[in-house]
Design a binder for these strands. Structure first.
Length: 650
RNA sequence: GCCGUUUUAGCUCAGUGGUAGAGCACUUCCUUGGUAAGGAAGAGGUCAUGGGUUCAAAUCCCAUAAAUGGCUCCA
């Protein structure tokens, strides 16, 4: 007999060799029916695998991420089975579960393609196969037998995978007529896969390497219930409605022009209003935090980037140099602001008393991103960083780091960004040669970052080997409407540039010391930040940021004079808004203002004119009653002030 | 950069080889209306660009550009 400890701490006894299914069945029939897999001492396994010794056991259902992953992984096998049936001779790559569903990489062979038009028949086949209730059967296979199998089958990708596997760790899973090299685990059988949807088809390099052959990747998602699929698709629709590219066009925030160039956004008046509010907000916060604003040119000589090292690393992939009438003279559009700031540092000798020196600039930079990378405002070729460089002594790194985190959190709070993760990127301890800087300094900086993040209680993930070659960093990652992750705020330690630019300060003992440099940008880029902000609030910007905070809507032409007085009063009070003098009925004006997501609609007619009041309608809420104009202004200004102090989450 | 898809009026989109369409927006006129679309008329297109096939191309083929879903990349 063995002891099985359940998640609630209770212990039950089973025959040695009992399966996860047996455990589930002993708890309840429903659990047994819904069980997708089992976690045994932390390891996710097939439900049917015998448990041979005392263990902690957790039954995995659809509600558990690992249960979903098992479900989707098995679905990927089902997709492969369907593809083999429909496209004989198809070669299979890998087919893992992912965050939302699964994919399978396939090689159809010369001249054959798959398009979304083919999806219905593949989906139908999958459903048909799923209904057969084929069991997923696990089998341990000796390496030579595995190789023989895939040689016989003629699948080069599986053979490639087998090369990296040792005898004894190779398992096959078979369901129906399909056998795949797979670590597992899998569902008991195919019958729980009820709803199938293939999402899209894309190219993907074998093993993620650009040099390898490009395979066809088919993405799909499956659910145990049709209703869940419908809900998922509805969620995707909602995400599309929030997409900043769509809202940016509808709300007239920004545009692109083929003639101006790909990836070069044009900020329209309303987008500019929004952006400038963010800029002012940040400028104010930075002045309070001891930053000194500077301004530097949009270009810099080639020598600047030779010194910084960027010429060698990125020169060929950048916008190409700007030439002058002077032969041999070349300038580059600046891809970052730091070299310019280093030159500002060098304008005079610096004392340890001057540090930390914090130079801030809303610097517009230009990077020639690969054409396939461009994406709305999140990935562009010209963008403005809310950049700053902090020059400090090594022992000040942690304190400065902490202060920057405070600033980022202040910004996120004012904007209601709660769903972020802080990614700490450290160097790869196995490969220290890749990085510049002394072990001592790295250790100092890496601990400083980790401690600062921990002290601030940031939700962190740590990635080894993700550090830049010049220093470790901390990035604030948020998701867009479609769940894609983007880096917004970033804080990076840099040992490289101070070295290359030979930056120095005079220490108390009169020796020359090298400062450490921190790059940091709380927004990251204004463009990307605005994109994420748009999706975050679905275009319903917090009042203090809204490009158009109010619209005065006269009931008819007769009240235009009074409406104009109201409008003038609000503009005098520095509110942003518009007046709708069109020859339309009030219902129409309201509808249009609602669609434009204007926070306050001020309706004025006979009643308002006589009493010196406005009828206030709030976006999304409706009529909230009438108040005197001055009272409205005061209440409005009060709300904005509270938001900017972070008292009210936007 | 690579693979797939897309590109028709300002916007959203129909139009599968035979005379370019709709709704909204826009202009003009009527209407002066109290909390989500008042009515009528009008104007608006080198069907992304360049080649090719064809008696005939928005439609079929090729190239280029841009957008888009991924992959790779991201100072």
């Amino acid at each position: 007999m063995i002891d099985i400890t359940l998640p609630d701490g209770s212990v039950r006894q089973f025959e040695a060799g009992a399966s996860g299914y047996d455990v589930a069945a002993s708890i309840s029939e429903g659990l047994a029916r819904n069980a997708l897999g089992v976690r045994v001492n932390g390891e996710v396994r097939d439900l049917a695998r015998p448990i041979t010794e005392n263990a902690k056991v957790e039954i995995l259902t659809w509600n558990d991420p690992a249960g979903k992953a098992t479900f989707w992984h098995s679905s990927a096998h089902l997709l492969a089975e369907a593809l083999e049936a429909l496209y004989p001779g198809v070669k299979l790559g890998i087919g893992p579960a992912i965050e939302n569903g699964f994919y399978y990489d396939i090689d159809l062979g010369e001249g054959r393609t798959i398009s979304t038009d083919d999806f219905p028949k593949i989906e139908q086949k999958m459903v048909e196969l799923a209904r057969k209730k084929s069991q997923y059967v696990r089998r341990e296979v000796p390496k030579d037998e595995a190789i023989a199998y895939f040689e016989e089958k003629g699948d080069p990708y599986k053979l490639d995978l087998l090369q990296n596997l040792e005898d004894g760790q190779i398992t096959f899973y078979t369901q129906g007529d399909f056998t795949d090299l797979c670590r597992g685990p899998h569902l008991p059988d195919t019958s729980s896969i009820k709803a199938v949807k293939l999402m899209n088809v894309a190219g993907a390099y074998w093993r993620g390497d650009e040099k390898n052959k490009q395979l066809t990747r088919i993405y799909g998602i499956t659910f145990p219930k049709a209703k869940e699929l419908a809900e998922y698709l509805e969620k995707l629709e909602e995400a599309k409605r929030r997409d900043h590219r769509k809202l940016g066009k509808e709300l007239e925030l920004f545009a692109f022009s083929e003639k101006v160039g790909a990836g070069l956004p044009l900020w329209l008046p309303k987008g500019t209003a929004l952006r400038e509010r963010l800029e002012q907000f940040m400028r104010k916060a930075q002045v309070k935090a001891g930053y000194l604003p500077v301004v530097t040119p949009h270009i810099g000589s080639k020598e600047l980037y030779v010194t910084s090292g960027h010429y060698e690393k990125y020169g060929a992939d950048s916008f190409q140099p700007i030439k002058t009438p002077n032969p041999g003279e070349e300038f580059f559009l600046k891809p970052m602001n730091c070299p310019h700031h280093c030159e500002i540092y060098k304008t005079k000798p610096r004392s340890y008393r001057d540090l930390p020196l914090r130079l801030a600039e809303f610097g517009t930079v230009y990077r020639y991103e690969q054409s396939g990378e461009l994406h709305g405002l999140t990935r562009v070729r010209g963008f403005t960083q809310d950049d700053a460089h902090i020059f400090c002594r090594p022992d000040q790194v942690k304190e400065e780091f902490t202060k920057v985190i405070d600033l980022v959190l202040y910004v996120f709070r004012a904007l209601g960004f709660e769903d972020y993760t802080a990614q700490i990127s450290l160097r790869d301890p196995e490969n220290k040669a890749k990085y510049i800087g002394t072990d001592e300094n790295w250790a100092l900086a890496e601990t400083a970052i980790q401690e600062a993040a921990a002290e601030k209680g940031l939700p962190t993930v740590t990635e080894l080997g993700e550090a830049a070659f010049y220093g470790p960093k901390l990035d604030f990652m948020v998701r867009d409407a479609l769940g894609r992750k983007w880096q917004l705020g970033t804080i990076q330690v840099d040992y490289n540039l101070p070295e290359r630019f030979e930056l120095e300060y005079v220490a108390p003992d009169n020796s020359r010391q090298r400062p450490v440099m921190l790059h940091r940008a709380p927004f990251g880029s204004l463009e990307r930040f605005v994109a994420v902000l748009i999706e975050h609030c679905a275009g319903n910007f917090p009042l203090w940021l809204s490009p158009e905070q109010f619209a005065v809507l006269p009931i008819s032409e007769k009240y235009q004079d009074y409406a104009q007085q109201v409008y003038d009063r609000l503009i005098q009070a520095e509110l942003r808004g518009s007046m709708d003098n069109r020859d339309e009925k009030i219902g129409r004006k309201i509808r249009d203002a609602e669609i434009a997501k204007i926070p306050y609609m001020l309706i004025v007619g006979e009643k308002e004119q006589e009493n010196g009041i406005v009828s206030v309608r709030k976006h999304g809420e409706g009529d909230v009653g009438s108040i005197p104009i001055d009272a409205f202004v005061r209440s409005f200004q009060g709300q904005v002030a509270d938001m900017m102090e972070g008292k009210v989450v936007a």
